[in-house]
Design a protein around this nucleic acid. Structure first.
Lengths: 209, 209
DNA sequence: GCATCAATCTGAACGGCGTCAAGATATCTT
DNA sequence: AAGATATCTTGACGCCGTTCAGATTGATGC
């Protein structure tokens, strides 16, 4: 009745498919992430996934879910790595953009999947998530916890702007500027410093992250 | 045959394909925008487009280019509609997000096409473009035109954050908040007001609420 | 006017895709 | 042990992007 380990014919195929999808994503990019390719990578027939996911979109959503969890963890780590709450938001912004830079294919899938459902997945907004970290970091930085609406707007603004920077920071157009500034992270910090939510950067010390 | 003064066998097929693509985009969404569907819509064989575009990506880029021009015009219009330069940036931000809301499929194609080439198309950054409008609006709002680097960073920050808001403003998750605020535009304005670039702000200010 | 040439378009084909229905196979329940 | 059930394979369908040989057209030179 339990069968936690490898219950069925193949084993936990559902999990294996998600892992295979992630492998393809990192190896060959988002364009190569077809349902058939995932099945091939997992060593099963092209129709096998349909016993675990309604369609391709649901499989991609499962892959994306792992991305949201990983992003939440990266944000949490960045938040608590800062001793001063004023630097926490700054660190969060940089960590967000760096996550997107380091996992571009996964990041793309995450938002593709989100916009297909016209909503962010629960893992982005509930529980021990990145969203909550941002919200709490805003409070610790001085936002009024009583003004619920303003707090939510501030969280949305912070998240949206980080997303925008994350999607565009990789454009080649900015390469020379990045170079002139001595690295990509300096560029990211500078762009974020122009956005109200992340403005607590004075040139004091090298960054942790 | 009714020639209608058209140059070649079919006429200006290149233009006809772009128009057909845009029609499909607005009627059936970005997922329906296949090369074959465009050819079908234009009344030619599936192979015909290959005499005008190297591949599907190039056709989509041509469709996207029209989007960038339209976006630039919308931004310019919003900029000059404001009497006070301080409100110009605010208007631009709202106009940007509203453009994305009103042409979601086109907007999606624009950035998909851009990220495929890892660069924004020329029409976004050169000439009478939205990018230039933002840059000049920043100067009129008080940015130092002599500090070239800072000005470029500010423009990037403004554009990125507007893009982020545009991509996320449609999420159903925010529906109740929008409702409570009395409409989507009020919501957009409120989110943008949390971002430094779209409000009058000074570089070394502490966080505004 | 006419032959030639290059540009343009068609038709058929290839492999890959998402998806489904039918049948085979392994596991669970009793 | 046997039936029920979940899992996987095989094969097929239509659509996709792309290529290529050949038909058709407009322009060009004589």
């Amino acid at each position: 009745m339990v069968a936690c380990g490898r219950p069925y014919h193949h084993g936990d195929l559902s999990r294996a498919l998600v892992l295979a999808g992630r492998r393809i994503l990192e190896r060959d990019g988002p364009a190569a992430l077809s349902l058939r390719a995932v099945a091939r990578e997992a060593g099963v027939s092209p129709a096998a996934p349909y016993h675990h996911f309604k369609d391709k979109g649901e499989l991609l959503a499962a892959v994306a879910r792992e991305g949201w969890i990983a992003l939440g963890e990266a944000i949490g780590k960045a938040r608590f790595a800062a001793t001063d709450p004023r630097h926490a938001l700054n660190n969060i912004g940089v960590a967000y953009v760096c996550f997107a830079r380091d996992h571009p294919a996964l990041y793309r899938i995450m938002y593709d999947s989100a916009s297909d459902q016209a909503d962010m997945p629960d893992h982005a907004t509930n529980g021990d998530s990145g969203w909550r970290h941002v919200r709490e970091a805003l409070i610790e930085a001085g936002a009024d916890p009583a003004d619920e609406r303003d707090l939510e707007l501030a969280t949305i603004a912070a998240w949206c702007s980080a997303h925008g920077v994350a999607e565009m920071a990789g454009f080649k157009e900015f390469a020379s500027l990045k170079n002139a500034m001595g690295g990509e992270e300096a560029f990211i910090r500078a762009v974020l410093s122009h956005l109200g939510t992340f403005t607590h950067r004075q040139r004091d010390d090298p960054a942790e992250s």
